[in-house]
Design a binder for these strands. Structure first.
Length: 669
RNA sequence: UGGCCUAUGGUGUAACUGGCUAACACAUCUGUUUUUGGUACAGAAGAGUCUAGGUUCGAAACCUAGUAGGCCAACCA
């Protein structure tokens, strides 16, 4: 258990502190509370990872509670999908619960609150109520119904429940403070009338409780110790506590643990969106094939794409937990899945963009079954046989008639190794009337011990099987598609996010099963899609291999411009380089300091006084920068700069400094 | 114009709660190994912690002011 202490995140710190202050460890209890109105996405995985992860580290129960208080949006389909996704991720919930289980209890407590004068029935239109609510910068005003008698409130509320009123005619409100700077405290709504059938309670209820009232008290009923949610609920905390503290008075004997809410920043992933509403739009408008389209950031989409539970959990672990807004680069997610699949996926050969190679000195009717290692990262993975014959496919990209020494692949007159087979040499090409290469004629050499620079994957044409290959690019062309308030995120949809190809695969893949994962050697990781059938295989590209060769080539497409040169790194002005030296100056060894000084003096020739003067105001504690500025200034003075008040003042201040180097430099004028 | 939250390399998180040259991961760039331009290994570059003051022997951390970003006015959650 003594794994070296990992840095705790702020939530873990809070729990540790609570434990240190006397909270018993067996009182710890968490929950994950999705609303069943859509599919879970990678963003939810963070919340799942936090609460279930805490459950695992503290060996505490974690409830799965569906926050199902809005029958208009919620469906059983989503409940099922959510359960499936959480289980797939490998988490186990203690209890499967529903806020709707607590409707009666909540109702009873609401009645109690009315009796205590803490809640009242309002009978205005929603417009009037919104009007009286004020704005964030303007206080609200009291409802004319605020001072109804307890008897009247009780009567009305009971009749609301009994279905005597149409929707929208009455609501129940908490009586708090219409002048609170927190809008949520301005007499928030507790119940509304909805004559809508609920997916679990059917037509038992026609009044439904609102989130703030329901959520916190559900936590309380379940005796959750720490209720963790995302940052936008921070302002709700005051209300959460208000409800909780009142109900605690009614129920503290039976329910001794008052839960506490804490908030963390939600996950954002670059080049995608996380809003359920917006994801739903992609589904409804047919941009994607469904919630589980492999391009979707949903858990079901990632699963279909070939992401493993392990890789996702690893990812969540790596992104950490804090309170500031963040955008995680997709490359981190890709790193996690590559790392996982590298160890587990068997390697096979598939050619996706073929060109024919004829090995002219290989007998026409000959074929050999050569041994190939399944996975060199896994000794237990074993070997298989791959057929070789006179005519094979290689990738078009792997051949050039002429190329430089940095091209390790096949070129005329050059040699290359065929993975698991022989070394071949390209002698000539056959072209069609357009000048496109249709065949490459090669000769092979049985001596495979030779050193050659490149190794290609290939597939024997007559043995190859075909498959549909689906390759994906990012769904959006903008790093944060929904961040622009003036533009609809749909404008950033990448029209080329899906490419379908026919691939030629080695015959060992003839009877793969849905979900199986492979590395197509030199190309990437692929899995068998749900649509795949024997005889009509379909593969998804999960993620490509890292490709340091591709980075060296001039980029042909421009959709990949997230690696564009950083503007600051272009060319730096002399003054900024001087500042740079300054930052390190006092940390440098003496010898290096002299070198830095010489460089600053050199750079000073390219610096105008106007650039230097603003730096005179550099904070006292940034001694290095002041030294560098002083050194540069001395150069300017040496070259004829007139002294002025600002300069004199700067030098005088330097002479009085605590730092010896600075004083020395200043005195030496 | 109000209230609340946040600010640390390109990105994300740390820094044992005020104490060594600000750490780790991804990304980037070099090498070495390699029958995957993958993996692995070795290394480099990149941050005075938003700014300005202050407290302190000592501040990324504490205080004040400012700046920037986020959240808050659904009978949604």
């Amino acid at each position: 258990m003594s794994e070296e202490k990992k840095a705790l995140n702020f939530i873990e710190h809070i729990i540790e502190e609570d434990l240190a202050n006397g909270l018993s460890k067996d009182k710890l209890r968490f929950r994950f509370p999705p609303e069943p109105n859509g599919y879970l996405h990678i963003g939810h995985t963070k919340a799942i990872g936090i609460s279930f992860g805490l459950g695992e580290t503290y060996n505490a129960p974690v409830n799965l509670r569906f926050d199902d208080t809005n029958p208009a949006k919620e469906e059983q389909e989503y409940v099922d999908a959510i359960k499936k996704d959480i289980a797939w991720l490998g988490y186990q919930w203690e209890n499967e619960l529903y806020s709707s289980d607590y409707f009666q209890k909540l109702y009873d407590w609401a009645v109690q609150m009315i009796k205590d004068g803490k809640a009242y029935v309002d009978s205005q239109t929603s417009e009037d109520i919104a009007q009286q609510k004020g704005t964030p910068t303007q206080v609200g005003t009291n409802s004319p119904y605020r001072s109804r008698s307890i008897e009247e409130n009780l009567d009305l509320f009971q009749r609301m429940k009994a279905g005597e009123f149409p929707a929208g005619t009455h609501i129940l409100r908490a009586k708090i403070d219409m002048e609170s700077p927190n809008m949520l405290m301005r007499d928030p709504m507790m119940y509304r009338i909805m004559h809508t059938e609920h997916h679990r309670t059917g037509n038992d209820w026609c009044i439904y409780p609102m989130y703030d009232w329901t959520h916190g008290e559900s936590d309380y009923i379940e005796q959750i110790s720490h209720s963790l949610c995302s940052l936008e609920f921070k302002p709700h905390r005051e209300l959460y506590n208000w409800f909780r503290d009142h109900i605690y008075d009614y129920a503290k004997e039976a329910l001794p643990m008052p839960p506490k809410q804490r908030e963390f920043a939600r996950l954002n992933l670059s080049y995608t969106i996380m809003s359920k509403r917006k994801l739903l739009r992609l589904v409804e408008e047919g941009i994607v094939s469904g919630w589980d389209d492999p391009r979707m950031p949903t858990i079901s989409g990632l699963r279909r794409r070939g992401y493993t539970p392990n890789s996702i959990r690893k990812f969540i672990d790596k992104v950490g937990v804090a309170k500031r807004e963040n955008v995680i680069d997709v490359s981190l997610l890709e790193f996690c899945i590559r790392e996982d699949l590298n160890k587990s996926a068997n390697r096979v050969m598939a050619v996706l963009d073929p060109v024919k190679v004829v090995i002219t000195n290989y007998p026409e009717d000959k074929e050999e079954w050569l041994e190939a290692e399944n996975n060199q990262e896994d000794d237990s993975a074993g070997f298989r046989k791959v057929p070789f014959s006179r005519e094979i496919y290689i990738e078009k990209e792997d051949f050039k008639e002429e190329a430089g020494a940095k091209f390790f692949r096949l070129q005329l007159g050059g040699e290359v190794r065929l993975k698991n087979a022989y070394i071949i040499k390209a002698n000539s090409v056959v072209k069609d009337e357009n000048g496109d290469i249709t065949e490459i004629h090669c000769t092979y050499d049985e001596d495979t011990s030779k050193k050659v620079k490149g190794t290609l994957h290939w597939v024997s044409i007559k043995h190859a099987i075909t498959a549909e290959i689906r390759e994906y690019d990012r769904l959006f062309m903008h790093e944060s598609p929904d961040s622009d308030k003036d533009k609809d995120f749909m404008e950033y949809v990448n029209p080329k996010s899906l490419t379908i190809k026919t691939g030629y695969l080695e015959p060992s893949l003839a009877d793969v099963e849905v979900g199986e994962q492979f590395q197509f050697q030199r190309l990437g990781y692929f899995n068998v899609d749900d649509d795949s059938k024997s005889g009509k295989l379909v593969f998804n590209k999960t993620v490509g291999l890292r490709d340091s060769w591709a980075k060296q080539k001039p980029k042909p497409q421009n959709t990949q411009n997230h690696n564009t040169p950083k503007p600051q790194q272009q060319k730096r002005s002399a003054i900024s380089v001087i500042q740079q030296f300054g930052k390190k100056y006092t940390n440098l060894a003496e010898e290096k300091q002299l070198k830095a000084k010489a460089e600053i003096q050199e750079l000073a020739k390219d610096v105008a006084y106007d650039e230097l003067e603003p730096l005179f105001g550099t904070a006292v504690k940034k001694v290095g920068t002041r030294i560098a500025v002083l050194i540069a200034l001395k150069e300017l003075l040496k070259n004829g700069l007139e002294r002025n008040d600002a300069i004199n003042e700067f030098i005088e201040k330097a002479k009085e400094d605590k730092n010896a180097i600075l004083v020395a430099e200043a005195s030496d004028i």
